[in-house]
Nucleic acid binder design. Structure first.
Length: 430
DNA sequence: TCTGGGGTCCTAGGACCC
DNA sequence: TCTGGGGTCCTAGGACCC
């Protein structure tokens, strides 16, 4: 049987802070978002006193004072480093794995990997890094997630490890899991399911597939299959190419003038284009957006966005800045209090694949086959093409994107190099 | 007073083409 | 009454995730 484990670090950011400050063990700890606005990580003790995930800091000040909660600004350099340590331990354990996020990884388990192995692995990670993890095992990614959820929710009972593939009463687990406890089911889908009389994972598992398909499309069908042990989500050992890069920030106090917005945008363009260069990519489209304060219902709201397809792909900060300024002027209206602004760089192309002239006509239709031939001619031996066209109609639909999606550089497959960019994020304040 | 930032995928509708 | 139909590309917006 296919067995996948999901290893998930517990309260990751808080746990990281504790590694370097052991006196925090057993005490309530929270870590804040970028601008110290929201609580994005909570220790068990902080959860126990009722601090909700994502809560604005100012709403919790009372509780924090009363219980002596330790509050930290986020320190992504630290978290990125701790993450790398955990991942490198995991990498040595299994033939294949997918780093899913800063604090999670899916592992492809060998046949002989028992629950005891998982417990030993958990102990090793704790001993070597100081980070507690939970491990869930299932026959699909979604079921591994579900198993992990159970391991975490019943830590005293499970010891942080739960193997759904060998559990005697899987239906019992399904029955006690509400649909929105499933990976990929949020508030809205849960509501839709409820409308069909589906309240638990067990209901969902035994639902009518045709009805699911009709009401929730391919997303629903995929969830349904994964839940029934039919894998639809592959383990992605190599992270796919980045589709876009975004940079945005909220203002501490609202901003009104074009000049201030321009200054903020200059910052965003610098950060985002730096990232694009580091990935070895070029930008073909840029979008700029503004937002007034959505929480102030009584203030006039204006949250425009605008995009432009560039004449020619670039990763130059100054070129992108010119585009950003132009776009900003088109959407800027005086008289509003802007709370946030940002940019998105999208339709990214590989720098190495780009040859001047080939992509410079974004508005016209492009004959992909012709370009493939031309690129291969320029790159050398046409008998052994470096570039191939991805087959159309693969499982992940080939529709809905630019012609660039049809490209695959063969050489990419030989450079399984994955660097996270967390190190680039700002240091914690104070 | 104070309310994060960065992603992915899917769908629907319009423009355009033959 | 009934208005061609099938395809691609682009964009906006929704939903979800960490």
């Amino acid at each position: 049987m296919n067995r996948i484990a999901l290893v998930d670090c517990n309260n990751f950011f808080c746990s990281c802070e504790r590694v370097f400050n052991p006196a925090l063990q057993g005490k309530p700890v929270v870590v804040l978002s970028n601008n110290d606005g929201c609580i994005i990580s909570r220790s068990e003790e902080a959860k126990a006193i009722g601090i909700p995930m994502g809560a604005p800091l100012h709403e919790q000040q009372e509780v924090i004072r009363k219980h002596g909660v330790h509050v930290f600004s986020s320190n992504y350099t630290l978290y990125g480093d701790m993450s790398a340590r955990v991942m490198s331990i995991l990498r040595d354990e299994v033939p294949a794995m997918e780093v899913y996020s800063i604090d999670e990884a899916f592992l492809q388990l060998p046949n002989n990997f028992s629950e005891e192995h998982a417990r030993a692995l958990r102990a090793k990670i704790l001993q070597w890094t100081g980070i507690p993890v939970c491990i869930g095992i299932g026959s699909t990614k979604l079921l591994a997630k579900l198993a992990n959820r159970h391991a975490k929710k019943n830590k005293a009972l499970t010891g942080g490890v739960f193997d759904l593939t060998h559990y005697w009463d899987p239906d019992g687990i399904m029955a006690e899991t509400p649909t929105d406890g499933l990976w990929g089911v949020g508030k809205n889908l849960a509501l839709r399911l409820k409308g069909m009389g589906i309240k638990t994972a067990l209901d969902f598992q035994h639902a009518d597939p045709a009805a699911i398909r009709k009401s929730m499309g391919v997303v629903g069908e995929r969830l349904f299959r994964e839940l029934n042990g039919i894998p639809c989500l592959a383990l992605e050992e190599m992270p796919p190419d980045r589709k876009g890069v975004m940079a945005s920030r909220s203002f501490g106090s609202p901003v009104e003038s074009l000049e201030e917005l321009e200054e903020a945008l200059a910052n965003h363009v610098a950060r985002a284009s730096e990232k694009v260069r580091r990935f070895g990519l070029l930008v073909t489209r840029m979008e700029v957006f503004l937002q007034t304060n959505r929480f102030k219902k009584d203030e006039p709201q204006y949250s425009p966005g605008i995009g432009i397809t560039l004449d020619r792909p670039t990763h130059s900060t100054s070129e992108l800045m010119i585009a950003a300024r132009t776009l900003l002027k088109r959407i800027y209206r005086p008289g509003y209090l802007y709370k946030k602004t940002g940019i998105q760089l999208v339709n990214l192309v590989d720098e190495d694949a780009y040859q001047p002239g080939l992509f410079d006509t974004p508005k016209s239709r492009i004959d992909v086959d012709k370009i493939v031939d031309e690129l291969n001619r320029r790159l050398g031996d046409p008998k052994n093409p470096v570039i191939t066209r991805a087959s159309q109609g693969t499982e992940r639909s080939a529709s809905g994107g630019s012609e660039r999606k049809a490209w695959k550089m063969k050489s990419e497959r030989h450079s399984p190099h994955y660097t996270t960019d967390w190190n680039e994020l700002p240091e914690a304040k104070g």
